[in-house]
């Protein structure tokens, strides 16, 4: 690929094509990209695309319409890289990757852990198939339904019913706790320990789960 314009750069990756978009209005970039693809259908046919959109803040409508345009041309959009938190959120909602997978060498800790009190605020119910990952603590204002996952570096607080999977202290923090108004997870993990909820009646009230002497225990919250 030689004739890429300054606004669109295309690079081959191990598992697809990386398209880096420059600084121009989004509609213009999208047009340019589609025109570019239409000019060389054979080159792009069946490609897996990673889109680096830089600082563009994209909403669901924009990203999903581009995805549809691409899929009409036989291209699969599988990841969107962005510096904009809105775009990252959008991409995650649409089920697109937001990071390029690297072969995992024994999980290196994230370079800069946020300070203990920098939490992620999630104001929605985590439904089946959704996954929230954050290096710090996570607060969910809503339920975590079966099939939903929250993976946090710190503690997890669920202001609602916890019925999905939660991993607190995912990077090894054994002090992390998990609290929920109704604690009935499919599976609970803190640091390296895994527990499955015992069958119990609901209405047990808010509970806190933590590690005590290496074992996961849940206690009523007071």
């Amino acid at each position: 690929m030689s004739a890429t314009s300054a606004l669109i750069q295309i690079k081959g990756l191990r598992d697809g094509l990386l398209v880096t978009l420059g600084d121009a209005p989004w509609a213009e970039l999208q047009d340019l990209l589609i025109r570019h693809i239409d000019e060389q259908p054979a080159f792009f046919q069946g490609a897996r695309l990673v889109l680096d959109v830089g600082t563009h803040a994209l909403r669901v409508a924009e990203l999903s319409s581009l995805r549809d345009l691409l899929s009409e041309r036989g291209l699969a959009l599988w990841a969107v890289l962005s510096e904009s938190p809105l775009t990252e959120q959008t991409a995650q909602n649409l089920g697109l990757a937001t990071r390029l997978s690297k072969p995992r060498p024994a999980e290196p800790p994230p370079a800069e852990l946020p300070p203990e009190n920098m939490a992620l605020w999630v104001r929605q119910t985590i439904r089946s198939g959704m996954r929230i990952e954050f290096p710090g603590p996570v607060v969910v204002f809503g339920d975590v339904n079966p099939g939903g996952e929250v993976i946090a570096g710190g503690s997890v607080i669920v202001w609602g019913r916890l019925r999905g999977v939660v991993h607190a202290g995912a990077a090894g923090d054994e002090q992390a706790v998990v609290c929920a108004l109704e604690l009935a997870p499919t599976q609970l993990r803190i640091a390296g320990e895994i527990a499955v909820s015992p069958q119990k009646k609901s209405d047990s009230g808010p509970e806190v789960a933590c590690l005590k002497e290496g074992r996961l225990v849940a206690e009523p919250w007071q």
Partner: peptide
């Protein structure tokens, strides 16, 4: 159904 409801929310 829960998964679909989530996807519908995401697609607005």
């Amino acid at each position: 159904a829960d998964r679909v409801v989530g996807l519908l929310d995401a697609e607005e």
